[in-house]
């Protein structure tokens, strides 16, 4: 009976299709890579690779030496004229809001530049100054080399696309790294409340 076989074949196709679709969308939850990275990070925290960084005061540090405190990490480039400019502003506001934990070195704000060509220590320092760095608990840095940058961008799920005018369009967000050095959450770049509550809640419990 071709009709029955056709029905059976159609059902098989539908089942296989729905299974694949469900797998490809993390169970019908993530249709874009941005929402997928947030769900995946939340459900399976990722180890942040120990990449060497050059900081705004031209010294060296690394993600390993930042362990032991909560990190709020943003990827930026200092030449940004659009909304990434607000990212710097937000970090100085977070410095006020998280004053205590930052002073006790329980939390650190970290701005990482992905523009290795342009952003040296002087420009990083200028970026912090421009946005009113309060002087405590905000580290601006860039990876030492391209290889380290590529590793970080992969683990954090950051994509930066040249915008054709010398700048970049990038998926800005605040990434949260726990004291064990694991990326555990990603919140909207402008959702200071979420970032603040995430760490203060975990520091008080």
């Amino acid at each position: 009976m071709p009709i029955l076989r056709t029905l059976l074949a159609s059902l098989l196709v539908l089942t296989a299709g729905l299974t694949t679709f469900s797998y490809a969308t993390n169970g019908f939850r993530a249709y874009t890579s941005e929402s997928a990275r947030r769900i995946e990070v939340r459900e399976h925290p990722r180890k942040v690779p120990d990449v060497l960084l050059v900081t705004a005061d031209a010294s060296r540090t690394s993600f390993a030496s930042l362990r032991g405190r909560w990190l709020l990490v943003e990827f930026i480039y200092t030449g940004c004229a659009s909304y990434c400019a607000l990212q710097g502003d937000d970090f100085s506001r977070l410095q006020d809001r998280l004053k205590g934990p930052l002073a006790r070195r329980k939390v650190e704000l970290v701005s990482i530049s992905f523009d290795l060509k342009q952003d040296g220590p002087d420009r990083l320092a200028g970026y912090q100054k421009r946005f009113g760095d309060r002087g405590v608990g905000w580290l601006a840095a860039r990876p030492l080399d391209q290889k380290g940058l590529a590793k970080l961008m992969r683990v954090f799920g950051v994509t930066a696309v040249p915008d054709g005018a010398g700048g970049f369009v990038h998926n800005a967000a605040i990434a949260i790294v726990d004291p064990q050095g694991r990326l555990v959450a990603i919140v909207n770049w402008n959702d200071l409340n979420a970032a603040e509550q995430y760490v203060t809640h975990r520091l008080t419990t």
């Binding site: 539908l14 694949t20 969308t25």
Partner: peptide
């Protein structure tokens, strides 16, 4: 079904 799957932005990414 296969075509629909490849319309997912995250898969194109």
């Amino acid at each position: 079904v296969a075509g629909m799957t490849w319309m997912l932005p995250r898969l194109m990414d």
